[in-house]
Amino acid sequence: MIWWMWVLALFFMTLGIGVVAPIAGVGGGVLFTPLTMAFYPFSTDFIRGAGLVMAMTSALSSAPHFAKKGLANLRILAPVVVVSIIFSILGGIIGLWVTNAFPQGKSYIKIGLGCILFVVFLVYLFSKRVEFPQIARIDPISEKLDIHGAWYEPSLGKVVEYRTTNLLFALPAFAGVGFIAGMFGLGAGWANVPVLNLVMGAPLKVATSTSMMIITINDAAACWVYMARGAMLALIIVPSVLGITIGARIGARIAVKSRPRSIKYLVMVIMLFAAIMDIWKGLHGLGMAPPI
């Protein structure tokens, strides 16, 4: 295939991801990184670098709007990101070390990403989201930090006030999420939202919006690790980010009108397919499976 065909294919793939992601309620990075690793000739280092820039850019575009509406809240973000940012940097360092120190490092990364995708698939399949969780008791640290917020909810026609809890239980989860984001070049909203919503008891809209804010910081910190090792190529980043930026605007408009469940199932099938492809390719790289 001629080089510009790869670049165009990348642009149209990310455009498609941008359109379906908001409709299906998933982030772009979780589709981009595994699909690109499975089907494109680029090194896993450059793919993860581009994946981080893509996830960060998408989050940067939406987080300010949520922050100014009271949905994304620094009171929730600050204590959890103090932990996750360090693990995100660590994930980036270890992720690049694996591919550069071991001859078959990229195969380990592909297998690891495939396994993570299976987890993501299961999370989307089974996790229940609670629109307005009821909190029985606020933990002492959340109480001391006075974690609270409010936003105007148009569907209820009133201002909703909320508090969160279980901060200590959420911290290890965010450490893991940060590590995975840095190591595999993902946004990891799929993990942030359930932890914020189901563990900390943040209302679903607040969890989704604050997750975007968390992604901006975690992924930006990991981006510096990839940038410092030269794992960023304009030829891969520019068409990817351009595609998802345009696609996301189209997708967001469609999502406001209708969110057919069939799209969500289609995305889940694609995710599962990418997971199988990544694991297979990784095993092939280790000489444990025949070529596809």
């Binding site: 940067l60 300010p64 809240n73 620094l74 009171r75 930026t245």
Partner: peptide
């Protein structure tokens, strides 16, 4: 009155700076 939400200044400032710099970066 029902719609009136006091956005915390730190959240507003965070969002406003991010909004401007994202456009410049893009």
């Amino acid at each position: 009155e029902l719609r009136e939400v006091a956005i915390e200044p730190m959240n507003y400032m965070f969002g406003r700076i991010m909004e401007v710099l994202t456009v410049v970066g893009l």
